[in-house]
Amino acid sequence: MSDRQEKMRQSAEKLLRDGEVGYVIGWGATRFCDRTTPVFIDSPEGAASLVWNEHAVNSLAKYLLDDKYPDKKIGLFARGCESRAVNRMIKDNQVKRESLYLIGVPCDGKSSDRCRLCRERNPLVYDVLLWEPEANAAPADRFERVRGVEAMSPDERYRYWGGVYDRCIRCYACRNACPVCSCRECYVDMGRTGFQGKQHSRSDNQIFGVTRAFHVGDRCIECGECERACPMGLPIMGQTQKMLKEINELSGEYECGLDADSDSFLGRFDLDDKDEFM
């Protein structure tokens, strides 16, 4: 483990020393040994503070949206989940591949429930790979939880989601952690348009939850950051996973971020799509 950490530090140090990148986004230590925080290293000396262990959980890709037009390339440590997010961001015209230097770090598994659905530990796109690819672990049943909710009666389903959203504190951590949630201004923050009621009520919370899921569901890379970020531990991936399940059923095998060319489901159409509205 520490061997890999050393490789990462050396690689970041060299990139910064050679002026290849403006800064490197990685993980750094916090007060607690079982937690890391994203760090932004802009000097070769700073590379010594990079950390790699099973607690390097946060997905780093979202931070690319803070700096869409960098003067120099941004160095980003990329695992499978970061690389899928980058693919999605490139397709969505959020970032340019040429402004990134992706340092591939095959993931050796993290101590987080967010990795439950991980199907791709190795970066799918990178400029350099720091060590040998890892074997992918068998992910949990992709739609198990969705099927659990589907099995309920309509009223039970409503009660279930109502109960979930009753506990939502509307901090929008799910939105802000999501790497494919990329609007410059969120509809939620357009207070006076009336799109989203601001009260902390079941109704407003539910509408936020369903709308958020709908906005990102067809581009979801299933990284699990939304659930990890949720301070209330709400099972909100149940909504986005439902979108993916339905898309899989409607248009065949569907997974996001595996390449940077595929349209999202709602961003394209087929003339011979199923028609239920005749």
């Binding site: 504190i169 901090c171 951590a173 802000n176």
Partner: peptide
Amino acid sequence: KACIGCGCCSFICPTCYCFD
């Protein structure tokens, strides 16, 4: 830099009292 800009800290803070 690492802040994601959510409101989690304010809402779970016992003394944050801003309202709209």
